[in-house]
Structures are given as C-alpha cells and as structure tokens.
Write a protein that binds this DNA or RNA. Structure first.
Lengths: 188, 188, 188, 188
DNA sequence: CGCTAACCGAGACGGTACGTCCCGTCTTTAC
DNA sequence: GTAAAGACGGGACGTACCGTCTCGGTTAGCG
C-alpha cells in the first residue's frame, strides 16, 4: 500500500520535475541550477530540497519521468519493416527531443553517480529488449540470417544511431534506418 | 614569425594542461575546478587565466593534447586483419584510458561550446578517415563486398564501440573487434 | 465570563511555556527556535502558532511565567537587616537562576519589542517598590539618613547587583549585600 | 612585525566594520544579517567571510572598533569634579550613542561567545580603572572618605548608570552624575 | 452515549539568511 | 617585468528556521 500523498505534494513534484527537465535540456548538466528550477516551477528552493536530497537526486528523478516510450509504431508488416520503423523512431528521438537534449547530461552524470548509472542501464536494457524481440521474431520467420549474434547486431544498430549524435556533428538520418537494418541484418 | 616563447611559459602551459586533464579524468566535467587545476600544477590561478579565457577554453585545449593517436598497430596482414586491429585499439582506448574518462565531459561540453564541438568533429573525422582508407583498400582487393556504404559501415563500427561505454553499463569487449568487423563487413 | 478552556489547551500552553523558558535559558535568545520548543514540548509547531502570534510573543509570555518572586525572606529584624536580605536575595537570583539566564534575552528583546519592554518596566518597578518600602520604613525609624534620594539609592543598589552580571565577568557576591547597603545608606 | 596589508584590504575591512556597527545599532543582534552588512558596505558576502570566520567573529571585531574612548574631559579641578564629569560622560554614552545601541547585543552575545565575553571584560576593566585612579587620588588628597571599598563604590557608580538603561525604561540622567558621586562617596 | 466542533500532530509550503565553494577579474608583492 | 599570491564582487550550493497553510485524527462536552 502506497502512503497517501496530498494533492499539494503531487502538484509541486510534477511542476518541479517538469521544470528540472526543461532546465536540463536548456542549459545542460554543467549549468543546471536548483535555484533556477525553483524559479521555473514557481516554487521555493526548500520545497525542492524537501523532496530530493540534492541536485543529482533531482536530475536522476527527472530522467525517470523523461524517457519517451519507444512504442513500436506498427505491429503489422514484415519483421524487417517493423525493425526499421523502430530504429527510425529511436533515431528521431535521438536527433531531436527533450530527451535527446538531456543525453549529454545523462552521460556525464552517470559517470559519477550510481543512481543515474542505474537509470541508464535500465533504460538501455529496455531499448535493447524491444529490438531483441523483433530480431528473434525475424530470425524465426526466416527474414534474418539465423547465425547472427543478436546482441552485437543490436549494439551496432543503436550505436550507429547514437554515435552521430554524440561524437560527431552530424546525427544519424532517421530516413536511413532501413538501410542500416539491411547493412547489419542482411536478407538471407 | 612566431613570437619567441619563454621556457617558463612553456613549463607552465605544459604543467597546467597535464593537470587539467588529470582533473577532468578524476572529478569529471561537472566538478572541474580551475582553482583545483592551479593547485595541481603548482601555479597561480591568474597564470591559467593569462593563457586561457575561461574554464571551457582550458578544457578544450586540454583535449587537443589528450587524444591518443590511433596509429594502426600493424601495416601488414590482410585489410580485414588490420581493420580489426584498429577497431580493437579504438575499443581499448574507449574502454579505459585518460581520454575515455574525459569523453563524457567532451560530449557535455560540445553541446554548448563551439570550440569543443569543433574538436569533437575534427577528431571523429580523423577516426573515420583511417577506417575509410582501410575499408576502401579492402574493397579494392576484394576482401569486402564492394556495394557497401562505407560511411554507414564506419558509423556502425564506431557506434558499436562507443555505445556500450556511453549508454550502457557494459563497454564493448575489444577482443570481439574481429566479430564486429565480420558482422558489418561480411566476407564476400 | 471567561470562555471555558479545555484541559487539553491548558496542558499544551503549560508545556509550551515551560519548554520555551528552558530553550531560552539553554540556547539564548539568538538561537531560540520555535521548532525546537515544539519538539521539547512534544507539540506540533502549529499548536504554538495557534496561541502566540510569533517568536517574540511567545518569549514575552514566557517571561511573565518566569519571574521568581522577590518575597522578602524575613519580616522581622531591623530595616537594614531586611533590606540587606532582600538585596542578597536579588543578587542570588541574578547570579544564577532560570531568570538570570534569560536576562540577556530580555534586554535584547526589550530593545525592539514593546511588549517585552513593558514587562521589563513592570518587573523592575515591582523590584524598586519593595526596596522603596523598606527604605522609607528605615528612614522613618531613623536607621537611614533621611536626606537621601531614595530613587537614586535604589538605582545604585540594584545597579551594583546587575552590573557585575551583565557588563563584567564577575557577578556581585550576594554575601556582600550588607556591605553594599552600608555603603549607599550609611548609618546616621 | 605586522604583515603588510594592502590598501584594498584596509578599505574593505573599514567599510565592513562600519556597516556592521550600523546594522547592529539599527536592527539589533537578533536580526543582524551578514548579507545586509555586505549590502550596506557595497561588498560581496564572500569578502566578509574572507576576513571573519562567522557572524559572531564580525560582531566581536566591530565592538573593538566601536568603543568610544572615555577620555576624562577635564584634567583640572577637584577629584570630585573630575569624577563627576567622567561619570557624566559615561552616562551620556550609555544614554545615547552608537555604542549604547549595541550594548544589548553585546550582553546577549557575551552570554554564549568567549570572544565577546573577553571584550566585555577588557572594556569594563578599562572603565573601572579610570574611575579607580580618580578615586584613589581623591582619597589621597582627602576629598573622599578613606575607608571606602573602592571596588564596590565603582560598581555602584557604574551600575546606577547602566541599570536604568538596561533594566528599566528610564536611563540615568547624566546631569545627576554629581549627585550620584556624592551619594556613594560622600564628602568627609 | 453519541455527535460535532474545536483542537491537535504532522509536516508541506514559499521564503530568507546562513556559511561554503568556486567563478572570472583585479591588485599587490616579490623574484 | 612577469608570475605568484590572493582579495575582490558575484552567485549557487545545501541547511536551518521562519510564519502560513492544509491535512486527517482525536477529544471533549452538549444535546
């Protein structure tokens, strides 16, 4: 049984988390300021510290509320089609979204903080799982070569999408998702 | 004509850059403190500000001095062998090295600062180029399938290596470099 | 007709006033914290604010309940003896008592707050009156020189007692009360 | 040898101490705010904390710079005249002066802080000493009764002056200094 | 004897000041 | 004449209380 939480608390928490995410996306992890979040959320600084131990705790919690769900956009079509669409969707989010603008903060934060590291792991595992299912299905119905190491394929797929965004100036073009899938999981 | 630079200045610059890199690797971008760098380098804070405009400027300059050269470790053997070795080397650096520990800082910094962004681009271009040469050579001598989109293959190769380090808890195992190459650039 | 006050209210008020006085004596006016008083009295903070407007109001009310009565300890003996005993008693209270430990708070508070100032006046007037009566009696029966300015004598007597406590490190020794009386009100 | 202090430091220190004294006189010890002192002195808060450990340290140091010198106003005339003048001067300062407005703060502070206690002792000892010299001189030349306990007389004199200011609403009238002296040190 | 209104504790709320740390600038001293 | 040392104004940190404000959960006493 969850302890009853007054509506006041819910309002504050919600407003603060939203504001924190905005702040994170706007000024980045380095310049992220709790006082600024408080101002954004029209809330006293102490209200934030009442609910979160410190800056990192707030940032971590914000991420939990930030991840946009990677719902497969289609549940019909060939496995290859659906996989491509999923990759395309991930690429779109990575190219530009609230979450995307927070990824650098997440990476930097996870380097030092266990809680962020944990969120990162859980979230990337989630991402991998949905891909894994599709690939397994595709192999079963003979659309993908069965000998492939699924794990590595997934890493290559997601890596390609993230690498452009994080390590070069030119993010991966979502429209080339199909090409990427065909490169890594060639038709038999 | 380059202005003559006193040896004293050179000593300071060197010590400061080394200290900055250490600091970056040790406490991360978020907690990076100029005053701490000054202490590490046994140098006055003002000496740092004499040579670099501000924190970011120093960090950016540190990176220029940080990148470990991706010299291909072998210049004989098949193109596939040499490519695998190169990927393995990159993976080793990414898994654990001074540079590796600074990547999160670089990503976070590049998000806001043009100079870091520029360094990031140049450096990733460098990385890509050496791979590109090897792949082109491999295609020419028939070790790789010629129809492949080299750019995308490179992105997938490097992405796989970086993705594990940055977005999950389990970095890419350098010993699986050959497997990765075979996955993305299958033998004809 | 006074509104009937539930025993609960009486219990709270009493416990709070006692706790406030303790707090005042223990940590002083500067560090006096309502939240700490609430904790001491095992009472909610709001219960305090229900009965007293603010910190000062509580402190002022505490004083009303704090002053130890200056009952003349003897009502027989010569006027000089009784005066000396009274001064001795005052000195003992000033040297060490709950009230004594609160005097600095009272002085500091009275400087800014009318209600504390009022309490201070009333209380010091009380003190003066009992001395005045004794002195008048002593003059009447010829124990004291009649020409003396009673007001000034009282001020000198009480001043000597308080000065040591408040402005120097060495409080007035109660055992020297008789000496003091003899100095200021010499026998004819 | 005192370490040379740059003129900048002197300017800050001076401005801050002045501002602190003003603040102390204006809002009292309880509401004394370092941030307010900083604003008054047009100085960064950190500049204050660079020179003084904390609030109390600043307050204590302010007092050292606050005490108005009790120079005997006359060095001719009878000992009784000069003593009266000195008492009158003390009374004037106690009735109304920057220092006077800070006395409650001093008393409250001294109750908890050793450094303030020390200042209070030193300062009151100074006051006593000048009176003692005059009284000793007066006794020698036969203006005062020789049998008097000088210490107690001084305590009564100063006590009378301070008692009105601190414990009642009506401070001692400086013009009655002579009367007071005659009461406590009657002519032979 | 049971209802209802006052009173209670708990503690969230927006604030303000604390004392700390570091920023990037500026001044002074000493080598 | 340059570099160290470090003071400067500024501003965010995380803490402690302020005085205000909902909340449910007793209690007490009247009906």
């Amino acid at each position: 049984m969850t302890t009853a939480v007054s509506p006041r608390v819910v309002r504050s928490r919600t407003a603060i988390l939203r504001a924190a995410l905005e702040e994170l996306a706007e000024v980045g992890y380095g310049s992220f300021a709790i006082e600024s979040v408080a101002a954004r959320a029209h809330v006293g600084k102490s209200t934030i510290y009442r609910h979160w131990r410190d800056k990192l705790d707030l940032v971590a919690d914000s991420f939990e509320n930030a991840h946009e769900h990677m719902v497969p956009l289609a549940d019909s079509g060939s496995a290859r089609d659906r996989l491509s669409l999923l990759i395309q969707h991930v690429a779109e989010v990575v190219v530009d979204s609230m979450f995307s603008r927070c990824i650098p903060a997440l990476i930097e934060g996870a380097e030092r903080d266990a809680r962020l590291r944990d969120f990162q792991s859980r979230y990337s595992a989630l991402r991998s799982r949905s891909l894994l299912e599709l690939i397994a299905e595709g192999i079963e119905i003979g659309e993908f070569v069965p000998t492939v190491d699924e794990e590595m394929a997934i890493t290559a797929l997601l890596g390609a999408v993230f690498y452009g965004r994080l390590m070069t100036g030119s993010p991966f073009d979502p429209l080339r998702a199909r090409e990427l899938v065909d490169l890594i999981l060639p038709p038999p």
